[in-house]
Amino acid sequence: MAVLELEDVSVTYRSAEGAVPAVRGVSLSVDAGRSLGLAGESGSGKTSVTSTVLRLLPKSATVTGRVLLEGEDVLTMKWGRLRAVRWATASVVFQGAMHALNPVQRVGHQIAEPIRLHEKSVSEPTARKRVGELLEQVGLPSRVAQSYPHQLSGGQKQRVMIAMALACGPKLIVADEPTTALDVMVQQQVLGVLADRVQDLGLAMVFISHDLSVLASACDDLAVMYAGQVVEQGPSDQVFDDAHHPYSRALGGAYPRIGDLRFRYAPSGLPGDPPFPGEAPSGCAFHPRCPQAREVCATTDVELRPSGERRWSSCLFAPEVGT
């Protein structure tokens, strides 16, 4: 059974310039023990999508569709129920290297906070013991609990964030660019820790990144977003190696793999900028930047269609699969 199911989710922000549609009709699902990578440029709507899971969007956002967490629609939950679900059923690994930790509280206290909140019966020594165990599980000595965030390195803070996300034994972990602010070596270590924990505990995970190569190595499946829509979805190695959408290809090419001659002779980037939300072009939103665009792309509305075994693409020229 799917731990998380998004059905036709749209997010619209109210702003001084009018309504800004950041996410337009996204449907995704993640099963227990599986991980889904969400890729896309800044502003493609990745974080807006995942913020609907715990309803963490600002008040100016309107969400439509259904967000089913273990079959229960998060969007219609009462506040009390929502607070009980937050962190206990689904938790978030924020960019801990930045400012996601409270600067004036010891990290042990911050990790123990959701335990005390959601499991009232847990005694203080037990909670402290669990914090020590959680820290050791992410490769940190338990005495780190006594540190303040500014005393830790970026990688250590990110490990603390992971320990914190695991504190209440959630079913789903949303990792929002958890490795983005880290250098490549530390990024690999943190990624390894996160992947190990998720696998050992059999959790479902949604992993957001703009780095397709990170996603391909960390996730079972990939969904690529452009201008608020999913443009391609499928098993991550296939999407990475043999993309069915020119945008996925460009995104993958932006992070060359060392030793792979294809990248050596075809250094690729993508000219132009993604459209501002609300100003998406007609037809396929990607056509103005697409190297393979033809005239029909500007006039024909596109939607996600099957393009292979467990694969979907919205490109008009993706392989056709009999429906």
């Binding site: 402290r128 005495r143 005393q151």
Partner: peptide, 24 residues
């Protein structure tokens, strides 16, 4: 208050199991 040694003041001796060393 705590079971665990102070990182800043305690000058702990135990080796760090994780790859990144703790700032002393």
């Amino acid at each position: 208050m705590s079971l665990i040694q102070d990182v800043a003041g305690g000058g702990g001796h135990d080796p760090v199991p994780g790859p990144p060393p703790l700032p002393r």
